[in-house]
Design a protein around this nucleic acid. Sequence first.
DNA 1: CTAGGGTTAG
Length: 431
Amino acid sequence: MNHFVNRVFELHRVEVVETLNTLREQPDKAFSFFNRLKEDGFSHDVCTYASIIRILCQCCWERKLDSVLLEIIWREKHLGFKVMDLFEILEEGLEGEDSNLLVRLSNALVKAYVSVEMFDEVIDILFQTRRWGFIPHIFSCNFLMNRLICCGKVDMAIAVYHQLKRLGLKANDYTYGIMIKAFCRKGNFEKAVGIFDEMYEVRVRPNAVAYTTYIEGLCMHGRTELGYEVLKESRELKIPLDDAFAYYVVIKGFCDEMKLEEAADVLFEAELYGIVLDTFPYGALIRGYCKCGNIDRALEVHDKMMSNGIKTNCVILTSILQSLCQMGRDFEAVNQFKKFRNFGIFLDEVCYNVVADALCKAGKVEAAVELLDEMKGKQISPDIINYTTLINGYCLQGKVEDAVNLFEEMSENGHKPDIVSWNVLVSLIRS
DNA sequence: CTAGGGTTAG
């Protein structure tokens, strides 16, 4: 039966193309006619697809074009034609200066392939492009290269960049920025600088994103000193950066390199210049001090941050509380916790956990349980780590029944025990 | 949708 139906449709295939062509000026009708046929079991071929694509390209209906292309991409194996065949069909029917059509199609195709991460196929298009006499727009290429980098295919992005130049496509400031990101990811700063040089030669001015990307790259690869130089240089060149972010990466970079004095100096200098900062640069320095056990300096920076009118938050407080506990100042941690809670600062489950853990280790499980209830009252649902902390607290007190009850409550709330929570219970059996 | 973006616990 199906076979018969298709035979009948076969006879009408030419008519379908003709009908679509007469509906050129009414894309909505053409599109519903196209879909109607499909619903009725008609299998479109390269010619009918080409017709609807021509119409959708001409009226710039990008969303609908995208859905048709994705459909072809998914079903390419069953359709009996290749995506590139569409170009051939469309090129034959080109009238006059219609060559836009192929560019539009290639842009849409790049976008469609990239959105489903079929990168090899896009790159195929890019390399075959010359044969058909068109080149995708630089915007499409930028989109492709950026997504390649996001997927960790940095070398492929760089290869695309070189291919673009071979095709004679002009890179713009976005393209260069993306390439700077690519080389920074690889830690190849000579090449990244080379991009800046190239920009200078072709008179494309690097913008804030290009500079920030470069600074961030340096700081993440143990070259913070240089990153800071670039930050200062761009400040002198009056390149507008997102200061809070730029200072954050530099301060974090110095902290990661255990250069706490340098990190503190950078923050000090930023304040001196009256640069507007947010919590992140402060948070980086506070965390840096906490990590190397200098909790008093951490507290100083925290105080200064707040006196500068920048609100603290639960992430920063977690670092501080954790560090206080590690230094054996649990009592102080609990007090600070209460102070900021009464202050109205939102404290999340992580913050609660640090204090709960401190209480448990001090033998005050009941107080920790109170905190758990307090969380629930604030509509913060305890997670597996919160439960494990308290179960451990009961175990330390030898309160087997309570531990098991909590374990069951945890399971009832949909938290499957993991390796840590099992280990806590196992330690109970051993003792 | 032509590029950027951040740290915390058992």
